[in-house]
């Protein structure tokens, strides 16, 4: 009989159509990680340009630079130190957007009406 305090058994997530190190996934699982955290450090291969550690300039001084394996260094104006992000490129760029938003000061005096 189940109760409200029972934790559901962890279920393997859907993995991306990328190369993953399943031995690393098993190590993550043994360390108690679940869900997408099973992929921490386990994504082995990003497409070619990212393998080169190439910066992804965002045009305003913010960059997301791929660091094997599966990590990005996020940096930009106003950040006291770079942030290490583990995950896919889209998620890294989304996190960079959040950082940028937190460091951007509105110059419009709060008036957002384009008219």
């Amino acid at each position: 009989m189940t109760s409200n305090t029972d934790s559901p058994a962890p279920v393997a997530p859907s993995f991306p159509a990328a190369s993953i190190d399943f031995n690393a996934v098993l190590e993550n699982e043994a360390a108690g990680k679940t869900g997408s955290a099973l992929l921490d450090g386990a994504i082995l291969n990003q497409p070619a340009a990212e393998e080169a550690g190439e910066a992804e300039p965002q045009g305003d001084g913010y960059t997301a630079t791929y660091q094997p394996i599966g990590k990005y260094v996020l940096n930009g104006p106003g950040m006291t130190e770079p942030e290490i992000f583990t995950g896919k490129k889209d998620a890294a760029l989304a996190r960079l957007d959040e950082i940028r938003a937190s460091h951007t000061v509105s110059l419009s005096g709060g008036n957002t009406d384009p008219a």
Binding site: F15, A17, A18, S19, I20, N23, V25
Partner: peptide, 12 residues
Amino acid sequence: RAAGFTESIVSA
């Protein structure tokens, strides 16, 4: 992979 498969490597 382009067809949507994960390449899951068990090296050991």
